[in-house]
Design a protein around this nucleic acid. Structure first.
Lengths: 203, 203
DNA sequence: TCCTTTCTGTGTTGATCGATACATAATTCA
DNA sequence: TGAATTATGTATCGATCAACACAGAAAGGA
């Protein structure tokens, strides 16, 4: 049903994937429609017919990014047996994801649109919401560990979540500066040194 | 001498200061010439006569930024009596500087131009160089502490410097997301927890 | 077959981008 | 005073921006 009219001559999903890569590499305002249509292999009317606008395309691309690129990081966080392994895995997966040679370096959510502008307020707001949600996921994981008795009741989950989320954001900039996997792992090791103090030397 | 011709009708230094604020708030590509000339109170020919180009203006603005906004952070690092106080002061001053209400939040050097582009390769390169120099300053301070016998000889200065520089970069994004001074200090506290492990529990 | 619907490619829209041409105003030097 | 020099304001340059008008092409429904 609803397949009337001329069929689309390109694959919408793979075109969206290409668009995601362009936004990832160049950011929202840095990615021009010429860049996008060239990478997607279509003309601008097709882009607007299929996605609505540059803004809507970006929102859909970030959604795809969250679903396709962030899974390893966040599934490790949830599934690791202890909070320490969860944070360590979170940082290690981040280091790995941010330094993949065949992809843009760093994180689309962190770097996609940092400078609020009248034309991109909605974009900034959406990315900010996603960053806040990521930090909240960290905090929930730590609170779970407190509830399960793994961490002491006075463990400051919010401060720790803020800290680890901020380290991850910093790793995006570090990766953009060309940091290797090893360099990112050095940062991860530093953050885990903080964990030792936060959780270890207590009882 | 060399004061021939019609004198400039505006104060070059304060115009540069206004330009710095615009670049700081909007980034390099986000700051249009209209934004700049409006904030500087001049027309574009005056801008080009006085500064050469948008690119040259940005480079001069970042230089001013380094000289005027970064001084507290880096002087604390150098002058603190111990390495621990140096790092702690570095982080505290950063939290303070990044959350000033009357200024753009976060750091111009960290956020000014993250997406390399054909038109702004030189800008990215310059900011990258400045970030690397900041990290090198951290490393030198730690190496000094090792040389003075304050830290053990096997202290990994490079890893630590990488870690603290990355935390600072993350604080820029955190500040852009509206983090308060208290929230930034939570991150600073987390980073200092790492210091305790790195340097404290050793001998 | 004809009508409706949807997509595609060409070409273009008004706006804005960074950067200047040009004539005029204001100063120093001779 | 007149020549040389430098800055200013107006007005605009070609290029590019995001977005779309339009006509033709390709499908389904009757």
């Amino acid at each position: 049903m609803s397949e009337r009219g001329r069929p689309r001559s390109f694959d919408r999903a793979s075109a969206l994937h290409r668009a995601m890569e362009v936004f990832w590499a160049k950011g929202y305002e840095g990615a021009s429609l010429s860049d996008l249509t060239a990478a997607m292999g279509i003309n601008s009317p097709s882009l607007y017919a299929a996605f609505g606008s540059k803004e809507a395309l970006f929102l859909e691309a970030t959604d795809l990014y969250t679903r396709s690129e962030g899974t390893d990081i966040w599934s490790t966080l949830e599934e690791a047996p202890t909070a320490e392994l969860a944070i360590e895995g979170f940082l290690t997966q981040t280091a790995k994801a941010y330094s993949q040679a065949d992809r843009p370096q760093g994180c689309l959510i962190a770097l996609g649109a940092l400078h609020q502008d009248s034309t991109q307020g909605l974009i900034c707001q959406d990315l900010r919401r996603r960053r806040a949600e990521n930090q909240a996921a960290l905090e929930r994981r730590l609170e779970r560990a407190v509830a399960e008795g793994e961490l002491p009741a006075d463990f400051d989950c919010r401060t720790a979540a803020t800290f680890f989320a901020t380290v991850q954001h910093g790793m995006s900039i570090q990766a953009r500066d060309g940091a290797t996997y090893a360099a990112l792992m050095a940062t991860a090791a530093g953050a885990m040194a903080a964990w030792a103090t936060m959780a270890g030397v207590r009882a």
